[in-house]
Design a protein around this nucleic acid. Structure first.
Length: 274
DNA sequence: AGCACTGTTTACAT
DNA sequence: TATGTAAACAGTGC
């Protein structure tokens, strides 16, 4: 269930594996994964294409092809598994790529929420879904002033809900947004418009710190995430609030609480986050 | 058994 | 327009 650090970890693993390889066959075992085109068109376009590079934009994986891009989102449970040879699909294998060197890439997705879509170079950033994204969080143009201006226009929205909106801030999901708000000392239900520029800057800095540290640790494995090698991340060892319900806060010792906000489980310290 | 929960996004109703 | 809810699906845990 990847957020930006997990997707970045996946991209770093896939990049050396697929770069320079030419697609020989594509088996679509479940058409639900394919968006934008009929599966037949999807396959027909990919045959003979070479994967030039693997890039990331937000939580999307971008396979740069000879012609255009294959854009993939893992949603909750999507996983890519590289293999040096042809192997049989397993349960929940939905799309299988084989390359002219004999290696294969399997897409596995228990809940089938993940997507794959072809885009031309011209369409890529000016059509949904990528056109809807805010700037990358590490972009210097993401300033406290710009973010504060945007948040100040929100009527009643809670800061947590706003930060999960990828058109406002890119890369945070339910784990890292809770961690960001804890580190910034901001209560998740605070109206987004009520944050001062100083508080917004604290949120921005902590978000970048959390995302950066999580990338360095290969992401977080709470229950099911593994990278394409099957390895787990280790950032979960450093979590302050996510999944820590009832445990003593590492800053003040009072128990971490959990509530429901915007339909998502929300973890916070009632003392450190007023 | 049945229900609530899960790391995401979006279509739809209000 | 903005915001909240349900839905897509499968598995796990109580």
């Amino acid at each position: 269930m990847p957020e930006l650090p997990e997707v970045e970890t996946v991209c770093r693993r896939l990049r050396p594996f697929v770069s320079g390889k030419t697609i020989e066959t594509v088996d679509v075992l479940d058409a639900k994964i394919i968006r934008g085109h009929e599966p037949e068109q999807f396959v027909a376009h990919l045959l003979g294409e070479t994967i030039i590079d693997v890039e990331r934009r937000g939580k999307f994986i971008l396979f740069k092809l000879t012609h255009g891009y294959l854009v993939s989102h893992l949603r909750m449970e999507g996983k890519f598994f590289p293999h040096d040879e042809r192997v049989n699909p397993v349960k929940h294998s939905h799309v299988i790529f084989s390359f002219t060197d004999g290696s294969t890439l399997h897409y596995n997705d228990v809940r089938k929420f993940g997507t794959m879509e072809l885009k031309t170079n011209e369409e890529l950033f000016v059509t949904p879904p990528l056109s809807l994204l805010a700037l990358e969080p590490f972009d210097p143009n993401v300033t406290a002033e710009a973010l504060h201006k945007r948040l100040s226009r929100m009527n009643v929205r809670a800061i947590k809900t706003a930060l999960l909106d990828q058109s406002i801030f890119v890369g945070l999901g339910n784990i890292y947004v809770d961690e960001t708000l804890f580190r910034a000392g901001i209560h998740p239900t605070r109206p987004a418009a009520s944050l001062s520029t100083v508080e917004v800057e604290a949120v921005r800095q902590e978000a970048i710190a959390v995302l950066t540290e999580a990338i360095e640790r290969g992401g977080s494995t709470i229950r099911s995430y593994t990278n394409p090698d099957g390895a787990t991340g280790t950032f979960q060892e450093t979590l302050y609030v996510y999944g820590q319900t009832g445990n003593p806060c590492r800053k003040c010792g009072r128990p971490i609480e959990k509530m429901k906000l915007g339909g998502r489980g929300t973890h916070y310290c009632p003392h450190c986050q007023q």
